[in-house]
């Protein structure tokens, strides 16, 4: 997907990043740091995704990059529709010449991370019918009522340096054919695709229960099959419930996110960014982040 920097914040972030590449040298690859688009999550170039929308996009070499807690990664960011129905999100990363093993972060209306889904949530699904080889999974978007602050409203697809070390073993198409036919699959090695920073992905967002009967029956052919399995495969540790309490309460992972981001900023000598992060964290109720920053600074002074 061609991510045009439509939002001023994104441009600003890019300028800032370009202005200070020397600061980035300590922990990050300078080239990576150079391309970081934005200062904070709120500044990401979010693209609106309508309900019922089906989007095929490419995260290419020119995709914007951001410093996520796990490291710098190219990403695609989306704004989810506001609706009173439970939304279901299908993400499919297609295995072709390249393969982007996705990690998905969901943010609420106040831009606080709510949940993250790692590679376990997007297992390999062999090519079938009209659907090519892909890493795919489904996520139910949490929404209490229209306008609720803790409704999940933003979606970020990115990857981690660790994921990029991996690879996916595909099922050889001759074996798929043999199995569909009830034949003995040829005893040959399967193709392997390395995970990278680029890839082609498909995103579909639908109201839950939006499938017609015919579609349900043809799910395997249409590629939406094995829904139960995929949902069951969601990693439990990564899925923490949003407490339906007051908006002020920051989630533990929000705290962790900001602490990590502050550490990253400090590690790269970017004190300004660290302060901004602490301020932003306080606004969203993550009080611990500011304390963490102070501790880190104090420790730095003491050391």
């Amino acid at each position: 997907m061609k991510m045009t920097t439509r939002l001023p914040a994104a441009c600003l972030g890019l300028l800032l990043a370009l202005a200070g590449p020397a600061q980035a040298g300590q922990t990050q690859n300078p080239l990576e740091a150079e391309a970081i688009c934005c200062d904070n999550l709120a500044g990401l170039p979010f693209q609106a995704l309508p309900a019922g929308g089906h989007l095929k996009f490419r995260i290419g070499a020119d995709a914007p990059r951001f410093l996520f807690p796990e490291g710098v990664s190219p990403f695609a960011a989306f704004r989810l529709p506001e609706t009173d129905r439970t939304l279901e999100l299908s993400l499919r990363s297609l295995a072709g010449d390249d393969l982007f093993q996705p990690r998905v972060m969901l943010l609420d209306a106040a831009m606080r991370p709510t949940r993250a889904f790692g590679s376990e949530a997007f297992p390999y699904q062999p090519a079938r019918g009209f659907v090519p080889d892909a890493l795919s999974g489904r996520i139910q978007i949490r929404s209490r009522y229209p306008g609720a602050q803790d409704n999940e409203r933003y979606l970020i697809v990115y990857t981690t340096p660790e994921q990029r070390q991996g690879e996916t073993r595909l099922v050889h198409p001759a074996k798929t054919f043999a199995r569909a036919h009830g034949n003995e699959p040829p005893n040959i090695p399967d193709p392997i695709v390395a995970h990278g920073e680029t890839g082609t992905l498909e995103l579909k967002i639908d109201a839950e229960g939006g499938f017609a009967l015919g579609q349900t029956l043809l799910q395997p052919l249409l590629g939406a099959g094995q829904r139960e399995d995929v949902v069951a495969a969601l990693p439990q540790p990564a899925v923490d419930a949003v407490a339906p309490g007051p908006v002020e309460a920051a989630l533990p992972e929000t705290e962790v996110y900001y602490r990590n981001a502050i550490d990253e900023a400090l590690g790269s000598g970017d004190l300004d960014r660290a302060l901004k992060l602490a301020e932003e964290a306080r606004r969203v109720g993550a009080e611990g982040a500011r304390r963490h920053l102070l501790q880190q600074l104090k420790a730095g002074l003491d050391g």
Binding site: R179, A180, T216, L217, L221, G225, Q226, R227
Partner: peptide, 10 residues
Amino acid sequence: TSALAVDFHG
């Protein structure tokens, strides 16, 4: 489809 996953081959 709601009770158990059926593999549909053909």
